[in-house]
Amino acid sequence: MIPRPRPERFRLRRTMMFMNAQKPGLIKDAYIYGCDSIMLDLEDAVAENQKDAARFSLYHALKTIDYGDTEVIVRINGLDTPHWQEDIRVCVAGGADGIRIAKCESAKDVHTVEEAVLAAEREFGVEEGRTLLMAALESPKGILNAYEICSASERMFGVAISGGDFRKCMQTTPQPDGIDMLAARGQMLLAARAAGIQCFDTVFTDLDDQAGFEAEVLQNKTMGFDGKSLINPKQIRFVHQVFAPTEKELIQAEKIVRVVRENAAKGLGVFTVDGKMIDIAFLPGAERTLRLGKACGMYKGDLV
């Protein structure tokens, strides 16, 4: 049995790769790809008559396979199905780090899942509050209610948009410039930042269109996403490259953290670093850059 450490609500999540929980050939190797999180799927990837088998498979995978530092999230079936309650029981009993709520449309949906998770934690003797939650927004209603969803629970670490279902609702298709989902991505990012949780973009499904994939990842980065859902290991490396800080950003961040701390001790509030005005407001961003650099193996210092 592999005991997993208590999940961290806020950690690096640049890449989150989907895996069918019903396919033993996939889940046994999941940790070798180096993505930050894996998403074991009980929902759409599993046929309706194999939901039971997928849970047995998931339980033993969670208990047996050492996923190391890779975070293990499980996507459960929607609240409008007969499956979600047993999905939650197996996730909690198996010790999954977090649960992704599919087709989330309101704070009430988050609360419904949260109650079932708490009941399962009590049933299986798991530390209360251990199991984290994230929500997938897949409909216009989910996007419009994004803030109440993001701020619905202390367990919520992030929110993601699910492009396939969302575009269907909006009667549109993927566009090279992302105009099809611009408003939705923007609204979701605003809500996530306002609630202080992470925000992830949808999967890019055309594996033959590498240029399109790269363009989308670059846009995700500039819009302020924390990471992206993936469907294939070959997509991991590029996302990690794009989301890593540059050498210049790291040097700048290190300087800011050092100077802000030194000057705070001296009682100075605002000053210049390399000709730019800097005050305390720059500290959280600079610290975040250093943490990201540390996770990417680029920053070896001890400021964070």
């Binding site: 039971d52 088998a53 498979s57 208990k63 047996t64 198996g94």
Partner: peptide, 27 residues
């Protein structure tokens, strides 16, 4: 793998008793 064999045997047995869908005694 052993963990897969266990999962498949358990699922088949629970299916034969028509109780594979809910209230599984995890743990």
């Amino acid at each position: 793998l052993d963990c897969t064999l266990k999962a498949r045997v358990e699922c088949a047995v629970f299916r034969s008793a028509d109780c594979s869908q809910q209230n599984i005694p995890w743990g």
